[in-house]
């Protein structure tokens, strides 16, 4: 009974991010579907922020800021796609497109800014 049983008790099994990834998705979905800008922006910020945090925790990215900047590209791309679809279809998607692009830009600024200025906040790197 040495090796495996109970091993999972013996190292730290905690991460704060999954809860917020899971909260971010529905908030963003509702916001985008119904065109509610605060929910769309807030949900996306929460979702993307948590993704960046989880990537950092996994050490898939070297800092959460860079993760943020990376994620922002996808959000901006999604926003641009909606912007294009707005002109190509009868549906009114502009407000949603702006929410996505705006959030993406915010994330990008935060990511780049954080990476440049807030490096000291991450000791040990």
């Amino acid at each position: 009974m040495d090796e495996n049983p109970g091993v999972s008790e013996e190292y730290r099994m905690v991460s704060p991010w999954p809860l917020f990834v899971a909260l971010g998705i529905p908030i963003a979905e509702i916001g985008i579907l119904f065109g509610l800008v605060p929910l769309a922006v807030g949900g996306l910020l929460l979702f993307c922020g948590s993704i960046a945090g989880i990537l950092r925790e996994n050490e898939y990215v070297s800092s959460a800021w860079r993760g943020l900047a990376g994620v922002s590209v996808f959000v901006i791309a999604g926003g641009l796609a909606l912007w294009y679809a707005d002109t190509a279809t009868a549906s009114d998607l502009l407000i949603r497109a702006y929410s996505l692009i705006g959030t993406g830009v915010l994330l990008l600024v935060a990511g780049v800014g954080g990476d440049l200025f807030a490096r000291d906040a991450e000791p040990g790197l």
């Binding site: 991460s15 999954p18 990834v21 899971a22």
Partner: peptide
């Protein structure tokens, strides 16, 4: 493990 947690919290 984290994806596991995300799956639950959804």
């Amino acid at each position: 493990p984290r994806i596991n947690a995300i799956a639950f919290w959804l």
